[in-house]
Design a protein around this nucleic acid. Structure first.
Lengths: 144, 144
DNA sequence: CGCAATTAAATCGTTTACGATACAAATATA
DNA sequence: TATATTTGTATCGTAAACGATTTAATTGCG
C-alpha cells in the first residue's frame, strides 16, 4: 500500500464535508417536519408548489434536479397523504399536472416558521450564509 | 394560501443548494469510481481504511458520521467484493474489526487520480475551495 | 459479586436516489 | 403524410440513509 496521498485523506476532502453536511442538515429538518408528517424531499416539493401551483412533474424535476424515477413515487406518496393531486394534462397527454390540495395549501402558513427555526441551528452570520449559498450555487452551475 | 414568505422560496434556501450540490457531486464520482466497481459511500470507507487499517465499525461510523444500520450492509457488500474482511475483535467480542484485503490496498494506488480528476469538475479557485471547506466544516461542527 | 446501564452491531421497515429501460404522446423531418 | 426522434412519466433493480428496536458483550456501581 502506497504512502497516503494528501488528497486521499478524508481531512482534505471537500466532497465529504459536503456530503456529511447535507445529511446532517436534512436530519435537522426531521423534528420540524415531523409535525407535518412529511420528509425533507417532500417539503421541497411543497416549496416548489407554494411558489407555483398546478405544474407538471417535469417542472418540479427541473427545479429540484430530481428525476421522474425519484419524483413519481415521492409525489404518489404525497397524493396518498392528500397533500396534492395528480392529473393528466389536457393539452399534453404525456404530462402529469400536480395541484396542491386545501391541506397542502394550508400547510404553507403553518410551516412558515420552519426555515427560521432551521437556520438557527446553523449559528452562522449573515455573511457566512451568503458566502456559503453563493459558493454552493456556483458549484451547482459548474457541475451540472 | 398565504403570500409567499421570502424564506419559503426555493431561491432563498441554503439547505436546498447544499442538498442538490451534494447529490450532483456524488454523481460526478460515478464515472470515476465505475472503473473500480464501487459507489461513493464505499469509496469513503476505503478512504478511512487507507488512512488507518484494521479499525472497528464504530471507528468508521465516527469518521463518516454514518450509523451501523447504514454501514453494516455497506461493508458486507464490500466484503463480498473482496475489498475487505470482517472479524470479531479478540479483546471486545461486540466489535467488528475491518481489514483491507490486498485488492483493497492495491486500489489505493490505482485510485490516486480520483480526487484530482474530481476537483477539476468544480472549476473553483483555491480560495473558493478553502472557503467552502471551512464553512462546511464549521456547519458540521455547529449542527452535529 | 450481582445487576443495571451502556455500548457495538445487526435487523427491520420505509423512503430516497439513480442507472437503465420501457412506453406512449408529441414533434420533427424526409 | 409516414416515420424517426424527442419528450414526459413510469417501472425495475440496487444501494444508500435512517428511525426504531433487538441482542449480546462489557462496564459501572452499590
Amino acid at each position: 500500500m502506497e504512502p497516503t496521498n494528501d488528497y486521499q485523506k478524508l481531512e482534505n476532502q471537500i466532497c465529504f464535508p459536503l456530503y456529511a453536511a447535507s445529511r446532517l442538515v436534512t436530519k435537522c429538518y426531521q423534528p420540524l417536519l415531523k409535525d407535518f408528517g412529511i420528509t425533507y424531499p417532500q417539503y421541497l416539493v411543497l416549496l416548489v408548489l407554494w411558489e407555483k401551483d398546478e405544474v407538471s412533474l417535469s417542472y418540479i424535476s427541473e427545479r429540484l434536479l430530481l428525476q421522474s424515477n425519484t419524483l413519481t413515487p415521492l409525489v404518489k406518496r404525497m397524493e396518498e397523504m392528500e397533500l396534492l393531486s395528480r392529473k393528466r394534462s389536457d393539452t399534453d397527454e404525456r404530462s402529469i399536472i400536480i395541484s396542491l390540495s386545501d391541506k397542502g395549501k394550508q400547510m404553507k402558513t403553518e410551516a412558515q416558521q420552519v426555515p427560521v427555526a432551521l437556520a438557527s441551528n446553523f449559528q452562522f452570520s449573515v455573511e457566512e450564509m451568503i458566502t456559503l449559498k453563493g459558493l454552493l450555487d456556483k458549484l451547482i452551475r459548474n457541475v451540472e
